[in-house]
Design a protein around this nucleic acid. Structure first.
Lengths: 246, 246
DNA sequence: CCAGTTTGCGTATGGCCTACGCCTTGCGTA
DNA sequence: TACGCAAGGCGTAGGCCATACGCAAACTGG
């Protein structure tokens, strides 16, 4: 059965899960999968996902574009490897942490940091995780709830809830921050004041007026993230109490 | 000031906000912005965002590729128009609905439906909304909280929380459902059972074992969405009670 | 009827991904 | 030591893509 399903899989998965065949003879490689993936991640970090092309990547590695295809079956494959490698290892928890809230908070904050360092990850994710790197993060998140009375389905639901929030918040911060010049956040505020007609968008106009979009009215983007996360975890707490009573 | 900022803006925004100049004379247009945008949306709906190219779009409209550029400055512009038009109008609420939870739930469910009908929207969003269509949705969401004691900053935080969740959930459902063959959801479950080694990913292995990823173990994806949303709104309820006491 | 204005679009450029096949390299073996 | 062959590096070329530029067609106000 394993072989049966392995044949249908993207090549990258078989490599990531250690199913690559060992090769003895042949020319000594000047390139390696690790070097390629690391260079691709660096390129995407520095210049954005749009700047990541096989040609530019080869240039950075000092090789010809087609050389890359000896180690990667295509660009999709490469991106799968990138998604696996970029996040690094998740924080470690025991099987049943006493303080689920602290653990889950730490998990979320660290993942938030990963997404801020590698904004392209969020743009790239398009299917549920199937690589060891992402599954390790998923497993760590599930473990934070090991001490709670939630069943596995509810735990998964909670983890996805947090995951979605972290991704959305990171994407928002990234898109607002990533602009070239200094007054980027201010630029969005200016746009809204320009367009938020109180007659057409009453609530929005009031919010703009209240300075919600003003750059750094007090708390930074990182604090905003924590505030939303706390709201979310309050909800999880309610669910846990309910499950404990049942 | 308006002109000053308008010149720096993407062309699409000036059109969307009604700042286009009226044109009297000249050849009668065979194409129109509305037809182009509608065709682009239909194409993206049917064949996915990757299939949306200026050439294929022109083919579908029965015109030459370059003709499109008379109505749209480029592909980015076109996508901005698509993002504005595709969601349609948001549900209507008064300025201060008595039942914030019902209103916000309705808003979330309808937006979820929009994302399921147009999965490409989630992939396309890369910056805060600046077009009338999306701002209308944002305004509607803010209005659902009009009767609560939350200040504007907190309301915005809650709305973004819900928005992130809706997007994430929709993307997940889409990516799992969109696969060609019948057993797509089952395929993911099969992959996980294959790879979720209990030694390496203990929590994940237990979850798989518990049938969390089994296709339709009972509730459908729509119910999963509602469950997560309820958790989330529980948290919002806590915040509202806290604000009421203060 | 003409001048001016706007639309439609043919051509061409430069980027992208990648199939294919050749040459090079170095190990294992005889 | 010499040979064969497996495997890496890469040149070429083809097919998509977005789009700058400029000309021809169509319509309209005077």
């Amino acid at each position: 059965m394993p072989d049966d399903i392995a044949d249908e899989l993207p090549h990258a998965l078989n490599v990531l899960w250690g199913r690559a065949k060992p090769k003895g003879r042949g020319r000594t490689p000047a390139l390696s999968l690790e070097r390629i993936v690391a260079a691709a991640i660096a390129l995407a970090d520095e210049e954005g996902l749009a700047a990541l092309s096989m040609a530019r990547l080869a240039e950075r590695l000092g090789c010809a574009p087609m050389s890359l295809y000896r180690h990667v079956t295509g660009k999709d494959d490469l991106q799968l490897f990138m998604l696996d490698a970029a996040p690094g290892p998740p924080p470690e928890f025991g099987t049943a942490p006493a303080d689920w809230r602290g653990a889950l908070t730490r998990w979320a904050v660290e993942l938030f940091g990963v997404y801020l360092r590698h904004p392209w990850i969020v743009q790239l994710v398009s299917s549920p995780p199937v690589d060891p790197g992402q599954l390790a993060w998923l497993d760590a998140a599930l473990r934070t709830l090991g001490g709670t009375p939630l069943d596995w389905r509810a735990r998964f639901s909670v983890v996805m809830l947090v995951l979605h929030y972290v991704r959305g918040a990171a994407q928002l911060v990234t898109s607002v921050t990533a602009e070239p010049e200094e007054g980027a956040d201010g630029a969005y505020a200016a746009l809204l004041t320009e367009f938020a007609d109180p007659g057409r968008f009453p609530a929005l106009a009031r919010a703009v007026e209240a300075g919600v979009f003003a750059p750094q009215a007090g708390p930074g983007p990182d604090d905003d993230f924590r505030v939303g996360l706390d709201h979310l975890l309050d909800g999880v707490g309610v669910a846990i109490e309910r499950a404990a009573r049942a």
